[in-house]
Amino acid sequence: MPVSQSQRFQRINDQLRRGAAIPTAELMQVCGVAERTLKEDINQMRDRYRAPIKFSRRLGGYHYYESFDLKTIEIELTNQDVAALKNAVTTLNQFRDLAVFADFRGAVEKIEQAVRFRISQPSTSQAYIAFEAVPPGQGNELLDELLVACMNRQVIEFKYQKYDDAAPRLRTVFPHLMKEHRNRWYIIGYELYPPQLRVFGLDRVIADSLKSTALSIDPPPFDAEAYFRPALGVAVYDDPAEDVILSFTQKAGLHFRAQPFYPFRKEDILVDSKDEFRVKLCIIINQELVFELARFGNSVKIMAPDSLVQKLITFLQSTLNQYQLY
């Protein structure tokens, strides 16, 4: 059975990691290819993964001239998988210079190497793929300091300027975790005065006002995964999740199924026909959900509950009022 190029790369890597120089004939036999193909494989390993391979006449073969190991992903990746991974790496690389991501930098580089490993012609294909460049958000410079506070369970203070307040207010908060949503960062924590769970956007924290305190508290337990699972966005949720039934047009239904804004199970599909895709979502009704549904325009209709229908009508009516001619 023919050996794939990725398998040949791994076989070459395994041989060279033995430490000794491996003769050309031996590598040809291990990979089951002619000398020309072997040299092409080695050149591609050098180009794609910066593999430090050198041929030594004195030693009589190929060897790694510095420590190296080619790590590959064992599963088969589709073009869509590769594009998704490339997009994720591109996004993560925007934060690579922040100390908060120092622990992940090596992992990101390994993923980036694996993505290059799966792209058959990286020098040409990348010219046909454009990824969204997200500029750094205001407040991102606080990430490092906030991570330290979260890890050390330190109570922090900062001045917070809400967009609709005339002046900033001093906040005293026990930070639980940081969360990113739609390219903005938030700190979720337990505010001491008054005692309550709160979410604060870093873009509204006044520069140079963040500091640690000597206060020590034992806040109520907080399960982030359970808290955010039934909702869209980042907010404080007091209401429980409700059954929301949505009726999409056939085309919008295909878009939703391809990239749902909220997860659903097969048994949650109520209608799946050439005219309609109807689905039930158990989700908290909040403003983020209203915004998401408004984005679909007339391609979706809320079948239940009536409270969500009224929220969307109010939102759309206020938008329409912006364009009323007097």
Rank of each mutant, 00 (worst) to 15 (best):
F9T: 06
I12Y: 00
N13A: 11
Q15G: 13
A20M: 08
I22R: 03
E26I: 09
G32D: 04
V33M: 02
R36V: 10
L38P: 03
D41W: 05
D41I: 05
I42C: 01
N43A: 15
R48I: 07
R48C: 13
A51I: 09
A51P: 06
K54D: 09
S56Q: 07
R57Y: 14
R57M: 15
R58D: 14
D69K: 10
D69Y: 10
K71E: 11
T72V: 02
E74G: 06
I75S: 09
I75D: 08
L77D: 01
A83I: 10
A83Y: 11
N87Y: 08
N87V: 08
A88N: 00
L92K: 04
Q94E: 07
R96M: 03
A99M: 08
R105S: 07
R116D: 10
F117C: 06
S120C: 11
P122A: 13
P122D: 11
A133T: 14
P136I: 00
G139R: 00
N140M: 08
L143W: 03
D144I: 09
D144Q: 09
D144T: 12
E145L: 05
N152V: 06
K159A: 15
K159E: 14
D164T: 05
D164R: 06
A166V: 10
A167D: 11
A167V: 14
R169H: 13
R171W: 00
F174G: 00
F174S: 01
H181W: 12
R184T: 03
I188W: 02
G189H: 00
E191A: 12
Y193D: 13
P194D: 10
P195G: 07
F200D: 01
G201I: 05
L202N: 00
I206Q: 13
A207D: 14
S209V: 03
S209H: 04
L215Y: 06
D218S: 08
P221N: 01
D223T: 07
E225Y: 10
E225D: 15
Y227K: 10
F228L: 04
P230V: 02
P230H: 04
A235S: 15
V236E: 03
V236A: 05
V236K: 03
Y237E: 13
K251Q: 14
H255A: 08
P260D: 00
P260V: 04
F261K: 05
R265W: 04
R265T: 09
D272V: 04
S273H: 02
D275W: 03
F277R: 04
F277D: 05
R278F: 07
L281D: 04
I284V: 15
I284K: 03
E288N: 09
V290F: 10
V290R: 07
F291N: 12
N298A: 12
N298T: 14
K301E: 12
S307F: 07
Q310R: 15
Q317W: 11
S318G: 13
S318K: 15
